[in-house]
């Protein structure tokens, strides 16, 4: 029974990974790509690791899979934040049809 639920979790995780990488191809600029791929790949990989935990139970590798889930959820948003701030301050423009950019206005006002 545990193995069937594990198969289902791994299947959901693979589907979300695929959608995240498709977003990396289709979306128009850096910030949108970062948003789609960070969300989808983080939850997809967490789902795969939870499937591994359901397969192994409370053994060494199962506990390590839980630790990996905690680690990814804590670190993936931090790296997305750092990359987006670095991209904005190095002068990467937003998409042409985007609505507003208050961050650039405030930085111009401050400088």
């Amino acid at each position: 029974m545990n193995e069937i639920i594990g198969y289902i979790f791994i299947g959901i995780g693979l589907a979300f990974d695929f959608f995240g990488c498709l977003g990396l191809i289709r979306l128009p600029d850096v910030y949108n790509r970062l948003q789609a791929s960070t969300k989808c790949v983080t939850l997809g990989t967490c789902s795969i690791l939870f499937g591994l935990f359901l397969f192994k139970g409370f053994t060494a590798s199962g506990i390590k899979a839980l630790l990996c889930i905690l680690f990814i959820i804590l670190t993936a948003p931090v790296s997305a934040h750092a990359l987006s701030r670095g991209a904005h301050s190095s002068g990467v423009k937003l998409w042409d049809k985007s609505v507003c950019d208050m961050y650039a206005e405030d930085k111009k006002y401050k400088a």
Binding site: L27, Y31, N32, L94, W95, V99, C100, D101, M102
Partner: peptide, 10 residues
């Protein structure tokens, strides 16, 4: 159609 409408808000 990619239904997105992006922007940076405060």
């Amino acid at each position: 159609d990619l239904p997105i409408n992006p922007g940076i808000v405060k």
